[in-house]
């Protein structure tokens, strides 16, 4: 074998290394080299992901408060978890969050899939309309929350004006009404993120080979049958992936809702993440809020795992 022939990872690395180091590198095994490269990443991951997670779990069993530097960290066992799981307020915030996630997902899937089917028809100007539809998704959630407060304003907002064109209900206070506040955040989230669902559905639709529809037509399958037996099964993995991403995002939704309603009126739209922030950085109950964060993490992690298994099953069928 010629001496300059590169055969191992160590040789490759040695050739790209200054001469002084090259000899040492040549002495390393491939596995050692691989470890050398991935160690910084692993260290970084441990430092910014794993350590905070473990530290949060530890703090969740203490009465620690971050705003009281001199106060010793006192181990209180599972008291934070008992208080959290026994609190009606916490269950209320979880219900509000679940309601928000479920409604946004249902509405966005229906509209997103519908829009994708329309855009997929490749009519004249389809590209232009795709771009227009995608614009809300590109905005900052905090900005969206802020300007929708103006759109929703009962006196000067266009939303109330449009509703009154169709039904004379007078000034419509979407944000201040207990009955409408939840719908106000669902509508804004739908406006902003339906394009995302549409985009993934469109990718799914474009991946369906045309010959499947040609074969179905030969078999005299109607549009509804084609949709039910070809389109939907083929798009389903993309749709489920979109729901997974958006579901996790909406479970931890914070900025847009804070700008829009601040969790009000009362606690009508106080999502779990908003309450978590209040407990952690306004009330400074660090131990208690750590326990809440762990519960939320386990919930999302568990639900996401179940969902991913379902997704894999759909892919296999």
């Amino acid at each position: 074998m010629p001496s300059d022939t590169v055969t191992t990872l160590a040789d490759k690395t040695a050739r790209a290394t200054p001469l002084a180091l090259a000899r040492r590198v040549r002495a390393l095994s491939d596995q050692a080299i691989a470890w050398l490269f991935i160690t910084p990443t692993i260290v970084l991951l441990l430092a910014i992901n794993i350590f905070p997670l473990l530290w949060t779990i530890y703090l969740s069993f203490t009465s620690y408060r971050a705003n009281q530097p001199g106060r010793p960290i006192r181990w209180i066992g599972t008291r934070n978890y008992e208080r959290l799981l026994g609190s009606e307020d916490i269950w209320g915030y979880m219900q509000v969050t679940a309601s928000f996630v479920v409604w946004t997902m249902v509405i966005q899937v229906l509209i997103g899939l519908g829009l994708a089917l329309l855009i997929n028809r490749n009519f004249k100007g389809a590209g232009f309309w795709t771009t227009v539809i995608l614009i809300p998704m590109m905005l900052s959630p905090a900005v969206v929350g802020t300007f929708w407060t103006y759109l929703y304003h009962p006196q000067i907002g266009i939303f109330s004006y449009i509703v009154n064109v169709f039904a004379a209900v007078g000034p419509l206070d979407m944000i201040g009404s207990v009955d409408l506040a939840m719908w106000s955040i669902i509508i804004v989230d739908t406006w902003m993120w339906t394009p995302y669902i549409m985009l993934l559905c469109l990718a799914g639709l474009r991946s369906i080979p045309p010959y499947l529809y040609e074969a179905a037509e030969i078999d005299r399958a109607g549009p509804l049958q084609q949709f039910w037996h070809i389109t939907l099964p083929r798009v389903m993995p993309f749709l489920m992936l979109a729901v997974l991403f958006r579901g996790i995002e909406n479970f931890k939704m914070f900025d847009m809702v804070v700008e829009l309603t601040s969790g009000g009126p009362g606690s009508t739209t106080e999502l779990a993440s908003i309450n978590l922030k209040r407990e952690a950085f306004e009330k400074w109950r660090t131990g208690y809020s750590s326990a809440f964060a762990v519960i939320l993490f386990v919930t999302v992690f568990g639900l996401a795992n179940i969902y991913v298994k379902a997704l894999n099953r759909v892919k296999q069928t």
Partner: peptide
């Protein structure tokens, strides 16, 4: 801050949300 947040939640729920 903790005392304030409790009051914010309770009085807003009563005054604005009518709970």
């Amino acid at each position: 801050a903790e005392l304030l947040q409790s009051m914010q939640a309770h009085v807003h729920a009563y005054v604005v949300a009518g709970e």
